[in-house]
Design a protein around this nucleic acid. Structure first.
Lengths: 337, 337
DNA sequence: GCGCACAACTTAAACGCTTTAAATTGTCAA
DNA sequence: TTGACAATTTAAAGCGTTTAAGTTGTGCGC
């Protein structure tokens, strides 16, 4: 049998209460006692039982992290930084992926309500965090990106419209006027916002906002490629494309390459997110970087704050930044001018 | 206050023992009683406290999964399948990344020894699973890939030498004789085995095994690119390269493209692992697929088996498979012949 | 010498559940 | 009517901690 605190106490000739204090609250016992208990614990290989501790102190020091997936190139950096920050703050993370069967959602909702975690970090705003928590979560919840405005859940996010704005402005400043947009999955808040941001930016710049220049790429490679093909079939093809994420942008560039269309000579691309995808594309992809690692840590800090009783803070909005790389260039006319 | 079983019992007019049974062991109570308890539970919003349950039954139904990282394109599929299978078998997973500071290792070793998980799944064979478990783990452990022969830990893996063998044979069958190898991180078992497998296959085929044709790419893009550059500077450059993973293969192909060397016309490539990297490369990368998703489920099944008291089974060795894609072609001389 | 403050420690209860062993109830045969 | 037996239910003992409340002992001022 694993030794318990009682064994340690007996060995050290003190009560379990003292043994407990000697190990976890050293200032409350005399020097000699502390040493005796420590030695007893070491000599019998005592290890605390965290489950018992959790039951007693009503804390698990564990966070549940729900991500839609992990093979998406957007999430790994986020998840890593969450894990890193959580660990530094004394929390372990249980991870769950939610874009699978409903079975998953239910299982995790169960974990949440059954007191096995102290808080929830959702990255899957998708169609509402209340699927996991109910309308009035009795557990601290923080959401990362993809804000759902209907709920009052604190969020760490970026200004998604600004993402689009930076991209469109960059292209416009290079002389592009026919700027297309390949948008992301319709159920994602970020995708909707980026599309709106694109429209707004185009309008502000006095550029034509044609419906045919906006195609839905559904956020993935195949959709991006298909959308690009449609754009290339237009009577008057765009000279630049802003894609709602890097994955689609890379796929779109590949379509161009396959057809002998030169990037950025014939057409320019800007992606969004700032994933590694674009870094290794050819040409390397200009993108609007979304600081995922920082979002991860900030979200954990926020969540831990809530758990520890801090008042709900306003949304955290992180800055985005344009990363100018090889995939966009001034229009020929701009060059000629 | 959250209602407890005692509240439910009082509400239903039975003892807590009966309430407990009615909810978790329904055959042991009479029909009417069961219904009454169920209704009482529902009416007061009772949710079981899993921590208390865990303490009592001495199980946590949680697994610790340690991965070196997640942004590596190799691991996501593995982690997802682990999560999926674990959930289906009634386990949650705590995930930890171990290629960070030692702080991480220690924290997770603590979790392990403190009874917060029922078992451990390690993907980071790196320099020995005993860093986490000590020489005699008192907890079930299963390792995925990267077997460490010194320890007696059951493992789910592939035949890494066969990975190399399939690649070399394919290239040789296309007429290649000067086949180079870009190897992976020296501390990884898979990398060492693949290099040995390359040597053995070359020798068996009677092909020259020159030290200068073997470069260390350290498993990552930069290393792969650098290794490729060195290979191209050889007096007699190789006509084909087997890379120990897809990431390096893609980087190596990019180097060729930048220098105007045509793939597969001038030089052929085969990678290994079967990650999405190679699928979207140009040309798409021939690779030796390592069934990561299946390895994940098998590992979980094995681990849960151990937890439930099954005897230790022999290693599980999964089959690998060559995926022929656009990055390799017969040599010019072979074509001419 | 008495009372008091204070430090050091112990006792005992609590956290919320499961499960063994014992008690209760009901049924039926003798 | 009684006893045997099965079917339910209950009381109580844990699971291994933490901690509020209580006890003991020491030194100190008076």
């Amino acid at each position: 049998m694993r030794p318990t605190l009682a064994d340690v106490a007996k060995l050290a000739g003190v009560s379990v209460a003292t043994a407990s204090r000697a190990l976890s609250n050293p200032d409350l016992v005399a020097d000699g006692t502390r040493r005796a208990v420590r030695e007893a614990a070491a000599s019998c290989g005592y290890k605390i039982n965290l489950v018992a501790r959790s039951l007693r102190i009503q804390r698990t020091d564990t966070l549940l992290v729900l991500a839609p997936c992990i093979d998406n190139s957007f999430y790994p950096a986020l998840v890593r930084s969450i894990e890193d920050t959580a660990l530094a703050m004394g929390y372990a993370i249980i991870i769950g992926f939610t874009n699978k069967a409903d079975r998953h959602r239910e299982a995790y909702a169960e974990l949440l309500s059954a007191g096995r975690v102290d808080g929830l970090l959702v990255m899957d705003g998708g169609s509402g965090v209340d699927r996991f928590t109910g309308p009035q979560p009795d557990l601290p919840v923080v959401q990362v990106f993809d804000k759902i405005y209907e709920t009052q859940v604190p969020v760490v996010r970026v200004d998604e419209q600004q993402v689009a704005d930076l991209a469109v402005h960059q292209l416009a400043s290079m002389g592009h006027r026919r700027i297309a947009h390949i948008s992301g999955a319709a159920d994602r808040h970020s995708a909707r916002e980026r599309r709106e941001g694109y429209r707004a930016a185009m309008a502000r710049l006095g550029l034509p906002v044609e419906d045919q220049l906006v195609k839905n790429g559904h956020g993935h490679r195949e959709g991006g490629a298909e959308a690009m093909k449609q754009l290339l079939e237009l009577p008057l093809a765009p000279t630049a494309v802003f894609c709602a994420n890097d994955t689609m942008a890379c796929a779109a560039m590949d379509v161009c390459r396959d057809r002998g269309i030169h990037v950025p000579g014939d057409i320019s691309f800007i992606g969004a997110d700032g994933t590694a995808d674009g870094l290794f594309a050819f040409p390397s992809l200009t993108t609007v970087n979304v600081p995922r690692a920082e979002a991860g840590s900030r979200a954990v800090e926020k969540l831990v704050g809530l758990i520890r009783g801090q008042a709900v803070m306003p949304d955290t909005v992180l800055p985005v930044e344009l990363k100018l790389r090889g995939s966009c260039a001034p229009t020929r006319t701009a060059v000629a001018a």
